[in-house]
């Protein structure tokens, strides 16, 4: 997994923090991604599992080598659909 392929890759199991969001209450939520739906991420924090909307949030994913900052809007899709590169896919 590289920073370039992260938006097309599996997010479950990665460490993430919400760097910025239109909703101030969810800024700073951090932990391991437990699951993903079309419009939200379920993050396992020390304080239970939080469901964070992708829209309007900026996420910082921690990979082994580096951190990757991603706008939540680029992740808005069904989890299985994001890997595809054909048939009108937005994730080339």
């Amino acid at each position: 997994m590289t920073p370039e392929t992260l938006v097309r890759h599996e997010l479950a199991g990665l460490d993430v923090t919400v760097a910025d969001a239109s909703n101030p209450d969810i800024v700073g939520i951090g932990g391991r991604v437990r699951d993903e739906t079309m419009k939200t991420l379920l993050v396992a924090t020390g304080d239970g599992v939080k469901q964070v909307p992708k829209a309007g949030a900026t996420f910082r994913f921690a990979l082994e080598e580096c951190d990757v900052v991603i706008e939540g809007e680029t992740l808005l899709a069904r989890p299985a659909r994001r890997s595809e590169t054909h048939r009108g896919s937005l994730w080339q």
């Binding site: 997994m1 392929t5 097309r8 890759h9 599996e10 479950a12 199991g13 890997s83 595809e84």
Partner: peptide
């Protein structure tokens, strides 16, 4: 490919 890597990780 990314899809193959995802299947292994899942």
């Amino acid at each position: 490919t990314v899809a193959e890597e995802r299947i292994v990780r899942l």
